[in-house]
Every structure is written in structure tokens, then in C-alpha cells.
């Protein structure tokens, strides 16, 4: 019984990525394209999965407790520019850079969290204000040049295989522990389910919120390093254009919220990121333009939203069928009794 349940959970966790891969594999082979899902394309898929998964995890941790953080993109940009620059100037190497960027991003998260709990303003308002401030600091730093490390290969190690996957596995293990087996995770889920009741039994909502912001910040720092490793540079953003950094994070988050019950939410979010990467790469291999890809991506996000909002109807339909069968049986019994 238990092993059956485990098998079902594994199957449900993998079904969507496997199905997406097979779909595009067949479609690309039918059109004569043999590049999808192998070689360089596979490496791009892995990079995209890791990068969007990290941002999506950072978004999910706050959004599920009702806090939409508009400063996600600006935190990533600011911490990567300053942290990367300092690490490079101080000659700290790749892991030193990773630590610098993560610490700075976590500090940005700490500031975001503290401002939110101290001011008591809606998270959207607070994060919009902070996004502008972070963008402005990133712009002012280094005379708006951002950070260029092109060619400094000893610093740019986090986007290539297998480093990116190792990084992802470590992050996922840590997140599963935090989400499912730690007090922080328990408290976070309780606050997401019923804030007042959770607070009444002593769960400290503000402390938990600040911790979530800090964890989200650290994850964004990691995402920043992966991004920097891929492109060798990062430019400052202004006018809230940093929001483009998290636009790809929605689909993994929605998939994570639907499939999380079969494994653990961080794993399901990663699976969502893999699905998105297959989708992007597959459409590209089929020759879709970037506008068409955006439209299709949007449609898939809508499809998942529609499903998650209406999934109860499937259960309901089954329940209704059973109820009608029961009513028919009862009717038969009554009719028989009347005849008798």
C-alpha cells in the first residue's frame, strides 16, 4: 500500500516534465529537427531550469503567505552588481563571489522584510518603493556600468553543467528540509493557512515574514550568480524594468502549487521550471518567434491557473455520479417496498 503510494507520488511528480519532453521530442523529430533536448540544447534547458527555479522559489516563499514582492528583480540585480564587483576586486574567486552576492541579497531581503513589518504597509506598496530604491542604487554604483566579468572564467562557473545541477540539488535539499522538516517551514505553512489562529498559538508572524524575505533574498543571490555566469555581465535597471527578471517565475510556481502534494513544494517548483525550459526550447526548435513563444507561455500559465481554480470540479463530478447512483438505489428500494 505504502509502496504504491510512493510510486504514485513519483509518477505524478515526473509526469509533466516527461510528457512535455516527449511531446516536443516527437514534434521536433517529425519536423526534421534533431537538436531538441540533446547536446547544447540540453545544457540550455538545464541552465534555464535552474535559473527560473531559483527565482520561482524566491517568489513562492513570500507569495504563498500573501506577500507579492515586486523587488525580486531589483534585489537580484543590485546584489549581483555590488557583490560580484566586490568579490572580483578583492579576488575572492567564484565561491567568494557566490557568498558575497548571497549575503548582499539576503541583506536586501532583510531590509525588505524589516520595512514591511515595521511600516505595516501592504507588501505590494513596500516592495514597489524598495524596487525603485534598489534599482537606483544599482544604477548609481560604478557609474551605471553594472558588472562585466566577460572572460573571467574562474568566476563564471555556476551556469555550466554539472555545477548548475549540483547547486540546484543542494538548494533543493536545503529547501525541502526548511519547508517540510523545520519550525520555520511549519510556521510558514500555518501562517499561510490561518494567520490569526497561528498567531494566537504563539507563532511569530513578523519574525517568520522577515526570515522568508531573507531566504528569498539568498535564493535571488544564487540566481544572480547563475545569470552572471551565463552572460558574464549584468546591467543596472531603471523604471521598474527589473520586473522582467521574475516574469518567467510564474509558471513554475503555479505548477509547484498543484503538484507539490505529490513530493515537496520546492521539488514541484523545480519540475515546473523544467517544464517551462522544455517548452521554451521546444518551441524555439520548432521555429516559433519570440512573440509567439511569449503568447504560448502566457496561455500555458492561464491553463494552469484555470486548472488550479477548477480542479475541485473533477472531484465534485465523481461525487455527484456516486450520489445519483445512491439516489437511484434508494428509489428502487422504495418502489419495491411500495409494491410489496
Amino acid at each position: 500500500m505504502k509502496s504504491k503510494k510512493i510510486l504514485k507520488n513519483i509518477g505524478m511528480t515526473l509526469v509533466l516534465p516527461v510528457a512535455t519532453y516527449l511531446l516536443f521530442f516527437i514534434l521536433t523529430r517529425l519536423t526534421g529537427n534533431t537538436g531538441f533536448g540533446v547536446g547544447m540544447d540540453l545544457q540550455t534547458i538545464i541552465y534555464t531550469s535552474v535559473y527560473s527555479c531559483l527565482i520561482s522559489q524566491a517568489m513562492t516563499i513570500n507569495l504563498q503567505t500573501g506577500r507579492f514582492d515586486f523587488a525580486i528583480g531589483s534585489t537580484l540585480v543590485l546584489s549581483t552588481i555590488i557583490g560580484g564587483d566586490l568579490a572580483y576586486k578583492w579576488g575572492l574567486g567564484a565561491f567568494g563571489m557566490l557568498a558575497c552576492v548571497m549575503i548582499l541579497a539576503a541583506l536586501c531581503g532583510l531590509v525588505s522584510g524589516l520595512v514591511y513589518v515595521i511600516l505595516g504597509l501592504p507588501p505590494m506598496v513596500v516592495s514597489l518603493g524598495l524596487a525603485m530604491i534598489y534599482e537606483a542604487i544599482g544604477f548609481m554604483y560604478n557609474n551605471a556600468k553594472g558588472l562585466r566579468l566577460i572572460g573571467k572564467m574562474n568566476y563564471l562557473i555556476f551556469s555550466s553543467f554539472p555545477n548548475n545541477i549540483i547547486l540546484m540539488v543542494i538548494v533543493l535539499i536545503l529547501l525541502v528540509i526548511v519547508y517540510d522538516y523545520s519550525k520555520i517551514g511549519y510556521n510558514r505553512r500555518a501562517l499561510a493557512g490561518g494567520q490569526k489562529i497561528a498567531v494566537d498559538v504563539g507563532i511569530r508572524e513578523k519574525k517568520n515574514a522577515v526570515i522568508c524575505y531573507v531566504i528569498a533574498g539568498a535564493l535571488l543571490g544564487l540566481a544572480g550568480c547563475v545569470y552572471l555566469s551565463k552572460y558574464g555581465m549584468i546591467s543596472p535597471e531603471t523604471g521598474l524594468s527589473s520586473s522582467s527578471y521574475f516574469m518567467s517565475a510564474f509558471l513554475p510556481m503555479f505548477i509547484g502549487s498543484i503538484f507539490g502534494r505529490y513530493s515537496s513544494q520546492p521539488i514541484a517548483v523545480f519540475m515546473g521550471a523544467v517544464v517551462q525550459a522544455f517548452l521554451t526550447s521546444g518551441l524555439s526548435a520548432l521555429g516559433a518567434s519570440s512573440s509567439l513563444m511569449t503568447v504560448i507561455n502566457g496561455l500555458v500559465v492561464c491553463a494552469f491557473l484555470i486548472y488550479s481554480s477548477n480542479s475541485y470540479k473533477l472531484v465534485e463530478a465523481k461525487m455527484f455520479r456516486e450520489k445519483l447512483e445512491k439516489a437511484n438505489m434508494a428509489k428502487g428500494i422504495t418502489a419495491k417496498a411500495n409494491q410489496g
Partner: peptide
């Protein structure tokens, strides 16, 4: 209603008391 949706029956019973089941990692 004083229970929290989104978590299990056991987690509801020990809401705020999780530390009884492990200092760092909680044993479900």
C-alpha cells in the same frame, strides 16, 4: 473554527509546539 487549513491534523494539534519533535529537524 480554530483549525488551520493547508496543514495536517497532527500539525494542527501541535501548532506552535513543533519543537517537541526535534530541535532542528522535526520528526513527522
Amino acid at each position: 473554527q480554530g483549525t488551520v487549513p493547508g496543514i495536517s491534523v497532527a500539525e494542527n494539534i501541535f501548532l506552535g509546539e513543533e519543537k517537541k519533535f526535534g530541535k532542528v529537524l522535526i520528526s513527522r
